[in-house]
Amino acid sequence: MTNILLVDDDINIVKLLTIHLAEQGYKVFQAKDGMEALEILKKEACDLAVVDVMMPFMDGYSLTKEIRKQYDIPVILLTAKSQIEDKEQGFQAGTDDYLVKPFEPKELIYRIKALLRRYDHQEDESVLRIGNTKINKKSYEVQIGNRTLLLPLKEFELLSYLISNPKHVFSREHLIEQIWGLDYQGDERTVDVHIKRLRERFSKLTDDFQIKTVRGVGYLLEVRRR
Rank of each mutant, 00 (worst) to 15 (best):
S126C: 05
L175S: 13
D97M: 11
A80C: 06
I13Y: 12
K101V: 02
L17H: 11
G25P: 02
P56G: 00
S171I: 02
E141G: 01
E173C: 09
A45R: 12
S203G: 04
V217E: 10
L115A: 11
D86Q: 01
I176E: 07
M54H: 10
E36Y: 03
I19P: 01
K196P: 02
R225D: 05
D124W: 00
V217I: 13
I130T: 06
L17S: 12
D47P: 06
G60P: 06
G218V: 14
E44Q: 15
M1D: 00
V169G: 00
T148H: 00
V142W: 03
N146C: 11
Q178K: 07
L150G: 15
I73H: 01
L21M: 06
R199L: 01
I195F: 07
A22H: 12
R172L: 04
E188Y: 13
Q185W: 10
L158E: 10
M54F: 06
D8R: 02
R111Y: 04
D208L: 02
L78Y: 04
L151Q: 13
K134V: 08
L221A: 04
I109K: 08
D33A: 08
K154F: 15
L77D: 03
Q83D: 14
A80M: 06
L221S: 04
R189A: 08
L149P: 07
K43L: 08
D47R: 08
H20F: 12
I176N: 01
R224P: 00
L175K: 14
T2Y: 06
Y71R: 01
G34W: 02
A31I: 01
I135N: 00
L99I: 12
E141K: 10
V214A: 08
G34S: 05
G94L: 02
E155W: 12
V169N: 02
R172K: 08
R118L: 09
K113Q: 15
Q122K: 15
Q92L: 11
E23M: 09
